[in-house]
């Protein structure tokens, strides 16, 4: 049957099935140990380097804003000392994982799709297969693994940078002593706080890696197609990161409170 004759729902189911098969193939390769370590390291370097600067800047600014607002709001209740805790907990439990995932899909995710997309429209996947090499193993697995490994690292960097941003405001604007601020920060973050944020990151990295690699691998229609699939990939990963964040937050809160 021709694709145009199928209903929207049928098309969607076919697409989803195709997505699952794609992920399965990647997963199968990883399970069988068909991982090219050098390629993965290259990806970690490229994806990490590309996003780390902007992640640090955005996190510094967000931490600072949290502290500024916290200073005003908490002062009303005479609870200025809690700025450090508020900043740290907001970042670690919620903001850093989500912000980092969104920045990462806009930078590294878009790059993955655009790169793979231009390979697809220039027959480079076909050429890989023609040379007897599996393009999933050689070109897709390293990019997705890179994604899985880089996003958690970036999240930790974001948390540290955000706390640093809050620290400057807390110390120089709210006039809290530096030692007290740092003590307060360390004291208020419990393991569950860290985990309740950090465990989401693994889901986000899978979402972003999966969507961006799939869209790139299936890009058609020349350079026009590369643009189309890339924007699509970023839009889908934004949407799914935000929706999954809501669902995961609900689940995690009911486990860890």
């Amino acid at each position: 049957m021709k694709k145009e004759n199928l209903s929207y729902i049928q098309n969607l189911i076919i697409k989803l099935g195709d997505n699952v098969c794609f992920f399965g193939e990647v997963f199968f390769n990883i399970l069988r140990g068909r991982v090219r370590v050098i390629e993965v390291l290259k990806q970690i370097y490229e994806q990490g380097l590309q996003s780390v600067g902007i992640v640090i800047m955005v996190s510094l600014a967000s931490g600072a804003v949290l502290a500024l607002q916290g200073h005003v709001v908490l002062s009303r209740f005479g609870a200025k000392e809690y700025i450090a805790s508020m900043v740290a907990l907001s970042l670690v439990r919620e903001l850093s994982p989500v912000f980092t995932a969104l920045i990462f899909s806009g930078k590294a995710g878009a790059r993955i799709t655009a790169e793979l997309g231009s390979m697809s429209v220039n027959d480079q996947f076909l050429a890989t297969r023609a040379m007897g090499v599996d393009p999933i193993e050689y070109l897709i697995v390293p990019r997705m693994l890179g994604c899985f490994l880089v996003l958690p690292i970036l999240t930790v960097i974001s948390e540290v940078a955000g706390i640093a941003g809050g620290y400057f405001i807390g110390v120089y604007e709210a006039k809290i002593s530096s030692v007290f601020y740092l003590n307060q920060t360390l004291k208020s973050i419990r393991i569950v706080d860290f985990l309740s944020g950090f465990s989401k990151v693994f889901f986000f990295s899978v979402i972003i890696g999966w969507i961006c690699a799939y869209q790139g691998y299936n890009t058609k229609g020349g350079s026009l197609g590369v643009g189309k699939y890339t924007t699509q990939a970023v839009a889908y990963s934004y949407m799914l990161v935000i929706i999954f964040n809501a669902i995961l937050t609900k689940i995690i809160l009911s486990i860890w409170g």
């Binding site: 390979m119 076909l126 050429a127 297969r129 023609a130 040379m131 007897g132 599996d134």
Partner: peptide, 24 residues
């Protein structure tokens, strides 16, 4: 199957119409 084809294709040289070189 595709894995079997990959093995077969190692023994076949193929020139693509547009070259299809890796641009990276």
């Amino acid at each position: 199957s595709e894995p079997e084809l990959l093995g077969l294709r190692k023994k076949i040289g193929y020139l693509f119409q547009e070259g299809a070189l890796y641009d990276f």
